[in-house]
């Protein structure tokens, strides 16, 4: 990666917005298209909100969340790592059922679905008791 930027994320519900704003500045300064910026912002927001809200329930130790942005070799990459409970959003998050009538639709559960569907590629691995999600977009 030619250009990288990393930030530590705190356990506060305002943090996703701060990270999204840092990403917006990083991506815009490096000429990423508005469409990709918007999609990645939403995915980052949803994933971080989820990690902060649910990722550390009953998990001992100090929570650590780290986000790294990278750009190079024709690729935009965003990596999100946390030491919370093991959670693979690609496999463990329930799929929303859009055929349900309005009054039966559950409130919530759309965040991970949005992230998965708006970003070109997302991969997950569990490594050294950390969840590692990598979002990539060819440029």
């Amino acid at each position: 990666m030619d250009v990288t930027l990393g930030i530590d994320v705190g356990m506060d519900q305002h943090e996703p917005r701060r990270v999204v704003e840092v990403f917006e500045r990083f991506a815009t300064a490096n000429g990423i298209s508005d469409l990709v910026v918007q999609r990645f912002c939403l995915a980052l927001d949803e994933i971080l909100t989820n990690v902060i809200s649910y990722g550390f329930e009953k998990v001992p130790g100090k929570p650590r969340i780290r986000v790294d942005f990278g750009l190079g070799d024709g690729l935009l990459e965003v990596r999100i790592e946390d030491n919370g409970r093991s959670f693979n959003p690609l496999a463990d998050a329930p799929l929303p059922d859009f055929t349900l009538p309005v009054d039966e639709r559950p409130i919530g559960g759309l965040g991970i679905h949005l992230a998965k569907n708006l970003v070109h590629d997302i991969s997950y691995r569990r490594d050294k008791k950390r969840n590692c999600l990598t979002l990539t977009q060819p440029l």
């Binding site: 927001d45 949803e46 409130i107 919530g108 759309l110 965040g111 949005l114």
Partner: peptide, 8 residues
């Protein structure tokens, strides 16, 4: 901008 919190 709207996230899933707003969609809810």
């Amino acid at each position: 901008y709207i996230s899933s919190a707003g969609l809810r």
